[in-house]
């Protein structure tokens, strides 16, 4: 290896992305568990812990800027850094969406949900599975896997449409449901957006590996 220090920095940057995606995934899981359990304390923790996500994300951005300025990366290294810059933004936004869910949990407090939460946790499970897969595709530079993972966004979208239809029906049936219903719709919408962000991450991974710019959602 000719540029050991530089290449070690690239590896560290990849590791930071892995840590970031772990944190984001936990934030999603906990935001949904706190929603299900009406656990305001846990929801507040999710909101507070977002600062850790923001810190790592900012650090990744600084590291990328520094590598671009000092090392003038080219070819696969350039594609890696460009992908990291984009994935970093998508992960940070996904973290913010988990915070938005936690805020709704705080607002709902002990109010009973108008329906049992089935599809919303299922959406969260699919999104977390997508983040896991995207992380693996990123670490292993596996563009085929990135394509496969992006397809799961269809499942998230289908679940969102299902939740939306169901909630609309409940609202029409009884206007007293509207308050809780609109909050649940907001949550489902946030999860749907998360799926889009992970699809974007998959696009960045395909670019990183193949140099091709693709649209996967």
């Amino acid at each position: 290896m000719v540029r050991d220090k530089y290449h070690n920095q690239l590896i560290q940057l990849q590791e930071k992305i892995s840590s970031l995606s772990e944190l984001v995934k936990n934030a999603i899981k906990e935001s949904i568990i706190s929603l299900q359990d009406h656990n305001v304390e846990q929801a507040v923790d999710v909101i507070k812990d977002d600062i850790k996500i923001d810190e790592i994300s900012t650090q990744i951005e600084i590291d990328c800027m520094r590598l671009l300025a000092l090392q003038q990366p080219l070819a696969r290294d350039l594609r890696l850094i460009v992908a990291i810059i984009k994935i970093n933004i998508d992960l940070e936004r996904t973290g913010d969406l988990a915070v938005a869910i936690a805020k709704v949990t705080v607002a709902i407090d002990n109010e009973i949900h108008i329906k049992p939460l089935v599809d919303i946790p299922r959406m969260a499970t699919v999104v977390c599975k997508m983040i896991d897969g995207a992380q693996r595709a990123f670490c292993e530079s596996d563009s085929d896997l990135a394509y496969d993972i992006a397809i799961f966004d269809n499942e998230v979208d289908a679940l969102y449409n299902q939740v939306w239809r169901e909630i609309m029906t409940l609202m029409i049936e009884n206007p007293h449901n509207i308050r809780n219903a609109s909050q649940l719709t907001l949550i489902a919408r946030n999860l749907e957006r998360m799926g889009d962000h992970v699809s974007n991450m998959c696009e960045s991974i395909v670019y990183m590996v193949t140099g091709k710019r693709v649209k996967l959602n």
Binding site: P73, L74, A75, R76, D77, L78, R79, T210, G211
Partner: peptide
């Protein structure tokens, strides 16, 4: 950005 040959990529990176 995306050379075809691995040795090209190895050299320029």
């Amino acid at each position: 950005e995306k050379p075809k040959q691995k040795s090209t990529e190895d050299y320029i990176t």
